[in-house]
Design a protein around this nucleic acid. Structure first.
Lengths: 106, 106
DNA sequence: ACCTTTGATCGTTGCTTTACGATAAAAGAT
DNA sequence: ATCTTTTATCGTAAAGCAACGATCAAAGGT
């Protein structure tokens, strides 16, 4: 994963409300999924929640699934885990091989 | 680590230039450290770089170390790794126990 | 004592984000 | 066919961010 992509995802994760939304989506996933559920759990206007959801959608962290009159969302677990790996890679490339600076060049 | 803190750090990591700065700091750490080094490696004004550095400082991802007329920066490896763990915890709490929704309540 | 280097900070400009209410479209219910 | 529910989108205001040049303070060099 490229720096720009990782940064974009980090930005998407960089708001406490959006972390909450991820948790809410995860929690309710097996019963119904949600969206007005999310709005109920947060003291925010529906339009605001919808906007946050869009950010998560654009980052590929959740997926939309129309279901009748409502839109359900499901976690993109693989993507969430890929972000973890990408970050791990960044850290490894930063914290590990910092011992010899030539490592990057060679 | 709390959601708000994690989100704040994510936001700090949410800009490609700042990821680059982390890399540059890591690379040069053992020789001199840097700062004008960073500015040289990036096609950005010194003030802009300084601003990005401040964001990383405030997030606790690097540390300042005055050295004569220049300011050197060093990675806060533990913090970077703590972020990885915190994210891992988030993922685990989200991707794992989503199978039974009662887990969170009980 | 003076000049230079380094780098933080200030002030500004333009863009993006966050929050809101209002509106509109799609699906279901009556 | 009409009404309701759900939710995305629009428009907007306020706050925040990213980039810049200019400036100022601190440390070293001459």
């Amino acid at each position: 994963m490229q720096d720009e992509d990782l940064a974009a995802i980090m930005r998407a994760l960089g708001h406490p409300v959006r972390l909450s939304i991820l948790r809410i989506v995860a929690r309710q996933e097996r019963g119904q999924c949600c969206c007005s559920d999310v709005t109920e759990s947060l003291t925010l206007a529906q339009s605001t929640v919808s906007q946050h959801i869009k950010v998560l959608l654009d980052a590929g962290l959740i997926e939309r699934q129309p279901k009748g009159t409502r839109n359900c969302y499901i976690l993109q677990r693989e993507r969430l885990e890929a972000v973890g790996s990408a970050y791990g890679g960044l850290i490894a490339g930063i914290c590990g091989p910092a011992i010899n600076e030539q490592a990057k060049a060679g």
